[in-house]
């Protein structure tokens, strides 16, 4: 379609509309089913003992297949964060919101999620948080089963305890 039907054409609109059927693969399936069916967070142990969440098809460090599944706590520590003030196309959340890296207890690397239950300017590194789950009948095959993370009331973690996980 031309933007101006009378003058010379300088720009056109060319739509792309392609329908895919995406596969989660076995590991994300484990993780997502855990969220929806058991309200649990499943990761996997790597050959060198680290716990990855969400689990993945191979250990990024060794390139070897991952080992057994491991349940990880829904409590954790904010390692770092930012405050999002900008609307994102296709994003349902309304800014401002806090986007944080959270290292869950028992995991070896952070998971990214939103923090709520505090004023945006109260977010801080080292804050202890816990998952706020959706009601059982509203759980979905997605991290959206967790509405957000919120302060757990525990004292802040020491910087040294999470500084390797930034």
């Amino acid at each position: 379609m031309s933007e101006d039907a009378q003058g010379p054409i300088t720009m056109i609109r060319t739509p792309v509309d392609l329908e895919y059927n995406i596969s989660a693969g076995p590991d994300l399936t484990l993780f997502l089913r855990g969220l929806k069916e058991e309200k649990k967070l499943y990761g996997r142990r790597s050959p060198n003992g680290d716990v990855y969440i969400p689990p993945r098809g191979a250990c990024p460090v060794t390139g070897q297949p991952m080992l057994e599944e491991v349940e990880v706590s829904d409590h954790g520590t904010v390692t770092t964060f930012c405050l999002i003030n900008i609307p994102i196309e296709g994003q349902e959340l309304k800014p401002p919101y806090v986007f944080a890296a959270i290292i869950l207890d028992g995991a070896s690397l952070p998971l990214f999620h939103m923090i709520a239950g505090i004023a945006a300017d109260e977010a801080r590194m080292g804050m202890r948080v816990k998952a706020n789950w959706k009601p059982d009948d509203e759980l979905v095959l997605s991290l959206e089963s967790i509405n957000y993370f919120e302060p757990s009331g525990e004292p802040d973690a020491d910087y040294d305890s999470y500084k390797e996980h930034l």
């Binding site: 792309v16 509309d17 392609l18 329908e19 995406i22 596969s23 989660a24 693969g25 997502l32 095959l141």
Partner: peptide, 10 residues
């Protein structure tokens, strides 16, 4: 294995 539809529409 879970699957889901996805539409690349733009």
């Amino acid at each position: 294995i879970l699957t889901a539809p996805y539409r690349l529409k733009y």
